[in-house]
Design a protein around this nucleic acid. Structure first.
Lengths: 116, 116
DNA sequence: CCGGATCCCTTGCGATACTG
DNA sequence: CAGTATCGCAAGGGATCCGG
C-alpha cells in the first residue's frame, strides 16, 4: 500500500467510527443496548433499573431512536397491566462484540482506578 | 450459575459499560482516539482535519480530558512554529480492539444504509 | 501552529406531574 | 406498567478573535 492509499484507508476508518457513534450517540444509548443485550429480552422498567441514573423520559426517547435505527424491536405484551418488551434485532446483535469489549475494558479500567 | 448470580453478573457488566462510556463521553472523544490510534502519532491540526466537523475549541478540550485520563500523551515538538504531537499511552492502546470493532461496524452499517 | 478567551445560541436532560 | 407533557437550568458546542 502506498502512503497515500494508507491515508485514505485511515480516513475511511475514522469516518466509519464517526458514523457508528452517530447512531450510538447520547449519554445512555450504549448502556441501554448492553442491558437488552445481556438479557436478550428486557422490559421497560427493568432497563430503567439496569441503567443507573437514567430517567424514564430519557429511556423512552432513546429507545425510540434505537427502534427507528432498527437496532431493537418493541413488543407490547398483553398482560395486565401491559408490559413492553425490547430486544435486539439481528442487526443490533452485530454490536455484541463491541459491547463485550467495552464491558471488559470497563472492568479493567475500574481496577486501574481502584489501584491508585 | 444460579439465576441470581447471573443477574449480578449482568449488572456488573452493564455498570462496566457505563463506566467505560463515562470516560469516552462527548460527541468527539472516540473519533479523536481513533485518529490518533490509526496513525500512532498525530498532530493537533491533523486531528482537526481527520475528525470531520470538530472545532479547535472542542478538540482542545477533549484532548485535555483524554490526557487527564491517561489515555494519551501530549508532546510539544521544538519546531518553528511549534507543533504538538499526541499519541496513545499503553493504557490507551487497550482501546484498540474496541475501536477496530467500531470501525468495522461503521463500515458495515454504511453499506446497510446505502443498500436501502 | 497550538490553543485560550469570549460571546451566545441550542440542546440535553433532570424533576415533576399526569394519562391509558 | 409504560410512557407523555411541561418547565427550566446547565452544559454543549459553534464562531470568531487573540496571544505565545
Amino acid at each position: 500500500m502506498t502512503e497515500n492509499e494508507c491515508q485514505l484507508e485511515h480516513k475511511r476508518e475514522i469516518m466509519a467510527v464517526h458514523d457508528a457513534m452517530d447512531i450510538l450517540n447520547g449519554k445512555w444509548k450504549i448502556s441501554i443496548i448492553s442491558s437488552i443485550c445481556y438479557y436478550n429480552k428486557r422490559r421497560f422498567s427493568d432497563i430503567l433499573n439496569d441503567v443507573q441514573g437514567i430517567s424514564n423520559k430519557m429511556l423512552s426517547k432513546e429507545l425510540k431512536e434505537l427502534e427507528i435505527n432498527k437496532l431493537i424491536t418493541r413488543t407490547v405484551l398483553d398482560t395486565q397491566p401491559i408490559s413492553v418488551q425490547y430486544q435486539l434485532t439481528e442487526y443490533g446483535m452485530t454490536l455484541k462484540t463491541m459491547i463485550n469489549n467495552l464491558a471488559e475494558w470497563g472492568i479493567a479500567h475500574r481496577k486501574v482506578i481502584i489501584g491508585k
